[in-house]
Write a protein that binds this DNA or RNA. Structure first.
Lengths: 110, 110
DNA sequence: CAAACAATTCAATAATTCATGATATATGGA
DNA sequence: TCCATATATCATGAATTATTGAATTGTTTG
């Protein structure tokens, strides 16, 4: 993850609806949610939600897959991990081996 | 850390100069850096840097302390921790005890 | 193939954010 | 007190971002 990707990810999460979506998808776990379900759960219009989901997708924070005529979205913990990795890369006096294991663990494949 | 604070923190880190500053301060560790040093290191005008430092301060991501006529800024890992905590609060099917220890550890008091 | 449904894209407006120049505040030293 | 240094604030204009209504694409069912 480079600086631009990290900025894009932070920018994506700095908007209320998108933060709500990401947290919802984190809570939903591996099975994710359909776009329509997400819009309904958060009481946001369909096209607004679609635009916000595209932003999260472009930021690498969610993944999508078609399911019949609906589209399923899942949180992409890989993206979150990359973001934290870039942010904290030099946090231990340039010895990343001290922090990287924690960053690996935090993204909850638990 | 509530939703508004989290949004403020993400917003603060979604701007290139501020992301650079935060990473610089993370790397600088406990001793932090003077406002002028930061501006010089990143080649940013004094008033622009001051405005950006205020944003980081308001977001709880840095702390400041006066030192003679200069002002020293340090990364505030507490703020980062809160942000991640809010983001991942429900990541383990509502069993925070699975993730919170990791979130505690990640902010590198190492 | 046509109708219904799910989601996306487009164009336009409204709101927010950013850097800048000028000015102001605060501290230390002569 | 007067000046120099270090940082912060203010007002402005330029650029970016968000939401909306309307139109469009892709999918399933009859």
């Amino acid at each position: 993850m480079d600086k631009l990707e990290t900025l894009t990810a932070f920018s994506a999460l700095s908007q209320e609806t998108r933060l709500d979506v990401f947290r919802l998808l984190i809570a939903a776990g591996d099975q994710g949610m359909l776009a329509g379900e997400i819009a309904q759960a958060l009481d946001v219009r369909q096209n607004t939600m679609s635009a916000n989901l595209s932003v999260l997708l472009a930021a690498g924070l969610v993944r999508k897959s078609r399911e019949g005529r609906a589209i399923r979205y899942c949180a992409n913990t890989e993206g979150l991990r990359g973001m934290l990795g870039f942010l904290l890369r030099d946090c231990c006096g340039g010895r990343p081996e001290l922090c990287e294991p924690l960053i690996e663990d935090i993204t909850c494949s638990c």
